[in-house]
């Protein structure tokens, strides 16, 4: 049976004292949102589950360092993000695609070399948006790690460029270039998908 959701203060005190009922409640309350964060970094189920397990354990072990005045969710989420990045960096084992085939092409004079099929999400088109969103998720997951990590940190989790660069050990300019190339790739993927279905 699921334990009742706890108030933040009770949760923190319970985790500090390693109260097993509170630990159960903690898993019930936070495993789904944390899993959601982690699955943006990897869709591989066994990787994601292992990262989730490690994240939950880290949260409990680091609970003494949490400043009680603030909301606990961003703190937990940061642990999940850091953990995902560290874990995936260590365990990269994906067949990765080349981005060059998906970059825009230009003529010698710098103009676009082919007609652009433009599209943008229409809030009214719920079904199409759901489809595109699912395509977008798959496209993000097909990105090589060195592009996927900065893209997810920036566009999904909203981290500033400077923090992403520091987290990934990159220069800011490199970080921006990777995010930009990842976005160009995603745009092209969705444009081709969208043009294929219309």
């Amino acid at each position: 049976m699921k334990a009742k959701p706890l108030e933040q203060g009770d949760l923190i005190e319970g985790l500090k004292s390693r109260d097993t009922k509170v630990i159960d409640s903690f898993v019930d309350q936070f495993s789904r949102p944390l899993f959601g964060v982690i699955l943006n970094y990897t869709k591989n189920p066994s990787d994601a589950e292992e990262i989730l397990q490690d994240t939950l354990l880290r949260v409990i072990r680091k609970i003494d360092t949490f400043r009680q005045q603030s909301d606990i969710w961003p703190w937990m989420k940061r642990i999940a993000v850091n953990n995902s990045i560290m874990w995936l960096r260590k365990h990269r084992r994906y067949t990765e695609i080349q981005l060059d085939d998906w970059m825009p092409r230009f003529r010698e004079d710098g103009e676009l070399a082919y007609p652009i099929f433009g599209w943008s999400g229409d809030p009214e088109e719920v079904y199409l948006n759901r489809e595109l969103s699912s395509q977008l998720y798959e496209a993000i997951q097909s990105l090589p790690f060195q592009y996927r990590a900065p893209l997810v940190l920036r566009d999904i989790d909203g981290y500033p460029i400077r923090q992403i660069a520091s987290l990934l050990g990159l220069k800011e300019a490199t970080t921006k270039t990777r995010i930009h190339r990842a976005r160009l790739f995603l745009r092209e993927k969705l444009a081709r998908y969208h043009s294929g279905r219309t």
Partner: peptide
Amino acid sequence: PCQHYLRSYTSCTEMARQLRDQEA
């Protein structure tokens, strides 16, 4: 063409933002 390009580029970032904090 660049207007189309920009619209779809920003649309991608907006859609990506919607994946934030989704429960699994």
